[in-house]
């Protein structure tokens, strides 16, 4: 498996994501510049965290115009797995691959700490190794992670099982006290309809080594590898790159 880590000016978790794939997962990774026109022959794309273009104007608002984003959109359109972490999530929302926006944290302060997340959908390419409802632990570090979308969109996300992670307490209860940034419905991560594009504020790449907060992030990367292997197996048997079923088996658009 080979993973492209996109580097924008101001990205700062690109090296960490690269290391998580290479040292944590034991797979290959390449860094692809913001001004590249194609991603090369890769199986997965990561939009890493950081402050692309300084987050001046609005996080992700400038990065969406970077030349590489056309290639990322095309890759996603073909069903390839795209993972947007933190600033990457913000970019995915700005570019329209995911719905909604990320506003400044309700407390108006940057917040860095470990959080608990409840896995709401274990059927995506990114969560296959988790159990539905499983509580995992990942760190967050952001100033603008307060997810918002209009109520119709939220209803659609709920209905289609596209809310992948919610902030919760250590027992899995979704409470306002466990919500670190004011996100509507405690949303920490969502996917697109097809399930192959995931954006989340927490940092799975910071949870891959034994000395880190947890190693739950590694399970997310392993899930993607599992999914790629099974879809490849299907490709061999004549089933083209599988459109992921986002939600409990329902057909996807």
């Amino acid at each position: 498996m080979k993973c492209a880590v996109v580097v924008f000016p101001g990205s700062n978790c690109d090296r960490d994501a690269h290391r998580a794939v290479v040292d944590g997962l034991g797979e290959q990774a390449v860094c692809v510049r913001h001004d590249a026109n194609d991603l090369g022959d890769v199986d997965m794309v990561i939009l890493p965290g950081g402050f692309s273009y300084g987050d001046y104007l609005r996080p992700g608002a400038i990065a969406r115009f970077a030349p590489v984003m056309e290639a990322v959109a095309a890759f996603a359109g073909e069903g390839g797995p795209v993972l947007g972490i933190c600033n990457g999530f913000q970019i995915l929302c700005e570019v329209g691959l995911l719905p909604g926006v990320l506003r400044p944290n309700a407390a108006q302060r940057f917040v860095c700490r470990p959080v608990h997340l409840r896995v709401e959908n274990a059927g995506t390419p990114f969560t296959g190794r988790f159990r539905p409802g499983q509580v995992i632990r990942l760190p967050i570090a952001h100033g603008q992670g307060n997810y918002f979308a209009p109520v119709e969109v939220l209803e659609e996300l709920e209905r289609e099982g596209r809310i992948v992670f919610r902030y919760c307490d250590e027992r899995g209860n979704v409470t306002s006290g466990a919500n670190p940034n004011g996100s509507v419905r405690s949303i920490a991560g969502i996917c697109n309809r097809r399930g192959n594009v995931l954006g989340l504020m927490p940092h799975p790449e910071r949870a891959v080594e034994r000395y880190m907060t947890s190693t739950d992030g590694l399970e997310l990367f392993r899930s993607v590898r599992d999914w790629l292997m099974s879809s490849r197996a299907k490709a061999v048997t004549g089933d083209a790159r599988q459109p992921a079923t986002a939600v409990d088996g329902r057909p996807t658009a």
């Binding site: 700062n12 960490d16 940057f110 917040v111 860095c112 790449e205 910071r206 080594e209 880190m212 907060t213």
Partner: peptide, 8 residues
């Protein structure tokens, strides 16, 4: 308020 983990 500080990102104390970036860099991994």
């Amino acid at each position: 308020q500080y990102d104390y983990e970036v860099g991994g």
